[in-house]
Design a protein around this nucleic acid. Sequence first.
DNA 1: CTGAAAGCGCTTACAG
DNA 2: CTGAAAGCGCTTACAG
Lengths: 362, 362
Amino acid sequence: MEQRRPTIADVAKRAGVSKGLVSFAFNDRPGVAAPTRERILAAAADLGWQPDLLARSLSTQRSAALGLVIRRDPTVLAADPFFPAFMAGVETTLGARQHVLLLSLVPDRAAEAAAYRTLTAQRRVDGVLLTDLRRGDERLALLAELALPAVCVGRPSEPTTAPVVNLDDAAGLRAAVDHLVELGHRRIGYVGGDVAMLHGLRRRTAFLEALARHGLEACGVVDTDFSAAAGAAATTSLLAGPVLPSAVVYASDPMAVAGVAVLQRRGLRVPQDCSVTGFDGMDLGAHLHPALTTVEADPVAWGSAAAAVLLRLLAEGHAEDVELPAAALVLRGSTGPPAPDLPPYPSPPPTEETPCPDAPTP
Amino acid sequence: MEQRRPTIADVAKRAGVSKGLVSFAFNDRPGVAAPTRERILAAAADLGWQPDLLARSLSTQRSAALGLVIRRDPTVLAADPFFPAFMAGVETTLGARQHVLLLSLVPDRAAEAAAYRTLTAQRRVDGVLLTDLRRGDERLALLAELALPAVCVGRPSEPTTAPVVNLDDAAGLRAAVDHLVELGHRRIGYVGGDVAMLHGLRRRTAFLEALARHGLEACGVVDTDFSAAAGAAATTSLLAGPVLPSAVVYASDPMAVAGVAVLQRRGLRVPQDCSVTGFDGMDLGAHLHPALTTVEADPVAWGSAAAAVLLRLLAEGHAEDVELPAAALVLRGSTGPPAPDLPPYPSPPPTEETPCPDAPTP
DNA sequence: CTGAAAGCGCTTACAG
DNA sequence: CTGAAAGCGCTTACAG
């Protein structure tokens, strides 16, 4: 015969107090004398009792769960080093406390909105972590409508009441451009990510601005969906231009790796004939030949900080924004000086339509 | 003033019935006349009411959530293409129903056991998906003790009451060996994964058995933790042996990719001087130079099937095992015939300690 | 400081 | 077929 699970009533009886007092003792509320609290805690320990979460949730109207809704294609997601690390970071923070992570992977925008609505209607989560922020992100309005607390992972395009936990990854991209220019590169192409996502857009902007600061213009810019296949296609299209870039900056590591393969298939050596930089710091990058120069953020720290801020928001009703250390450039083998025998100017003189302008005199 | 959320009492009043009947109507229980049910459903729709999950959970003692506890180092996890795809598959199945996925990432065995205990004590999940099965996995006993329903993702080492959703990935490994032998390879090395995990162990066994069926022995076997770094180190150690393998079979794609880099750094060409096969079918593999010959499973289908079986187990009290299509070999550029000028036998004659035996005459 | 009671919003025997 | 009531196991005013 299975032993009945003890309830708060059992603890109260054993400690010789009322149920209410047991509850007070367990929720650290004032009004329970120290010796009484000791007695209650001891009784609970004897019985192996801990508050039933379901019952508590019904009373408090809180689920003690955090939600993360990710809208990504399974294939793209599987290749993305960000989310697993981010989630591991979230767990680092949640592990100690009593909250839990609820994950939802959705295929499209409609399913995404439905997911937030259901999560709220069923009170499955107390708040959510908002990733992959988009330009004029409609989720912000949705969450406000649903009155669902949220923290933005990355700065949204418009000011919100939701606290933001930001990590400046554009800084790393600027560093990558500076590095290439210092090496002597003047014809630098860019293979970006999804510009519908703010981080995709910001990386692109950071790239163009960094170039501009050096008085340069891009030797080709292609937007993609962050996938390796798209990175390969974009590289091919860059190579089809009238002028070969001497370096290409990629907005993700998988794209950079696929790009390197395309270059090598063309018989171009990396970095001698073309330098390449990636973005994300995926573990594998360090073990490639050549190893990938890339921009590294700390997604584990990001997840951990985001969860901490959301918890604070839930507990205190508000939370300050947090700014994490910026993403940093990691130098490895895929970047080097341009070959000395590369013509300083494009061999076919550029015309108006040419994506690659002359390198202006400094 | 915010509108109060409607309750079952409101619906009952509007439909002119008792609360109990509303509950019966919503739970498809017999005993409510068709016209009455219509009236109830209409009233609920008018009010925009749906049963409160928290209240229902307290009554039914079910959380309508499935748990997935993953014990992996964040870095290793981030490089692993399996879990995101697997989770996407799980979501495919859950999306339609009312269950939800609860994720827990834990660093070690103690945290893992604690996670299952807490999940059960708090009744946060109705059942769990068991991945990364280990030899004599102690979680099976733990789950039995906790009376927590579970399904095994992959066949456990010992028979269990838990249904298993299996996908024979060893089949793909055998195919890889057959392929290499057919190409003419006789000196084949192996870089395995974590043999504490059953899939790691089984791949290794499949490799050795497949070789044996061809009358061959392994030209070096190294176990690792599945990480790219370990794959690189293992490759280096294989190359330090008295005999160079003409092909290396890897138990994961990241290791294979890192291995290719090590070979290339040594000035060896892939596949001319050494063929390489991977395992997982990570998206990036198709976009490498050379593209990676690998063994592909379908983790999305696996996740989807596992979730479906767990749901069935919860609903009906039992569920049949499911066998998914086996993993298949995908031929790409990293495998080819051994160079004709490779000596048929190791240049330094093998001694007793040599990891690479002579190729026996067929 | 402490107790008795209502309430969270459902589900489920038990009567009719 | 239907209604009235107890119960799930907590939390939280409200009295004392």
